[in-house]
Simulated assay, not measured.
Amino acid sequence: MYILFLLIIFIIFMVFSLRIIQQYEEGVVVRLGKYARSLRPGVRFVFPLLEKVKKVDMRTRVENVENQDIITKDSVPVTINAVVYYQVINAQKALHGVENYKKATSIVAQTVLRSNLGAHTMQEMLTEQRKLDDLLRKTLDEATEPWGIKVTGVEIRSMDLPEGLRRAMAKEAEAERERVAKVIVAKGEYEAAEKLADAAKVISQQPVAMQLRTLQTMTEIAAEKTSTILFPYEMASFASLFNQLQDKSTDQPQVMQNEMDKGK
């Protein structure tokens, strides 16, 4: 009977002393109100009634920072939405260094966003976002280091701009695109003029090349079968042809008279 009683006591002791720590957790043992040790993942033993175990999730957390209304350095109101990636690297500091490390990290992230982004212009926020993300990460990591928290990343998800500013930026972007398009067209015209000048030099040295080019152009036009082709002639050639026809018309009566004389 005595042995059975001891066995029951032992079983109860084992049940209350066993703790299972998951792979992604770390246990913090507090003995009589004072930090005693940390427990790694697996099955661990503690002294019932004397020790308490608090588990801390060591995985990377993603904290969505509340929207922050910020006035930029050039007095532009902007609403910022960002996310923070952080991980607990020291469970004992996370539990004993701050009352609620999750809430504290979120509040510090909001403060860091307002103070750092407010010192930059709107143009810098749009063009140097990666640089600003790295600056926010370093600043937030320094603020949370005493709590045993490592900030691995800060990303600005969106920036809500005033409607008037959006329209102004859209007009500016459209004007910039039109300017680039005009420059490209002008550059193409300039290069085409240079090529035409080179071609004119070659044709002036080889007159036959002009005739070949004319025939090639006529061939391309005739392929569509919807155009009337007019053959250009030089004025000197046209005058020569006209004179030949006129000479033939004046010689025709004399030829007829000669034929009649022969018949007689």
Rank of each mutant, 00 (worst) to 15 (best):
R19K: 12
K131D: 11
F231S: 00
M122H: 07
A186K: 08
I184A: 11
T79M: 06
K187S: 04
K93Q: 12
L117N: 11
K262W: 08
L215G: 08
E176M: 10
S240T: 06
K171E: 14
E26L: 09
Y35I: 15
R40F: 12
V29Q: 03
T105G: 14
L117A: 01
E145N: 04
Y101R: 00
V180N: 15
I12L: 11
Q23A: 05
L215I: 06
R19T: 05
R177A: 07
Y35R: 09
E163V: 15
N81M: 07
I229F: 09
K225L: 12
A181D: 10
E220V: 13
N258W: 08
M58Y: 04
L113I: 10
S17F: 05
E220P: 00
V208K: 10
G148I: 03
D251H: 06
V98F: 03
G188E: 10
L113E: 07
P41W: 03
V78M: 06
Q87D: 08
T111Y: 07
H120C: 07
Q205E: 15
N67L: 04
Q92A: 13
I229S: 00
F5P: 06
K264H: 10
L132H: 12
M256F: 11
K73S: 07
D134S: 07
E63S: 07
M14P: 05
K138D: 09
D198G: 01
A173Y: 04
F242T: 13
I203F: 12
A199K: 08
K262R: 09
K195M: 09
M235R: 11
Q257G: 10
K93F: 14
L161R: 05
V78D: 00
F231D: 13
Q244R: 09
F47Y: 04
H96A: 13
A143G: 06
V84N: 03
K195W: 04
T219N: 05
S17M: 10
V255I: 13
A173W: 02
H96E: 15
V255W: 05
R59F: 05
V53E: 01
V112I: 15
A36I: 01
I89M: 06
E194P: 02
M159N: 04
S38A: 03
D69S: 15
A104H: 05
I149N: 01
A109S: 04
E174A: 11
G42Q: 02
A239K: 09
A222W: 07
N116C: 11
I21W: 02
E178G: 10
Y233W: 11
D134G: 14
T219M: 13
T250V: 14
L49H: 08
A109G: 00
I12T: 11
P253T: 12
R19G: 02
N258M: 15
I8T: 05
Y24W: 12
T72P: 00
A209Y: 00
E66G: 15
Y24E: 07
A91C: 06
T139G: 08
G148M: 05
M1P: 05
E194S: 12
A175W: 00
A193R: 11
K150D: 08
T214I: 02
W147Q: 01
I3K: 12
A236P: 00
V180W: 04
R166Y: 02
T217G: 08
M1D: 13
S17A: 15
V78T: 07
I21Y: 06
V30Q: 00
V183D: 03
S17T: 03
D69V: 15
E25K: 04
V208N: 15
R31Y: 00
M260A: 10
A168E: 14
T105D: 03
A199H: 01
N243H: 04
Y233P: 14
R213C: 09
Q110F: 13
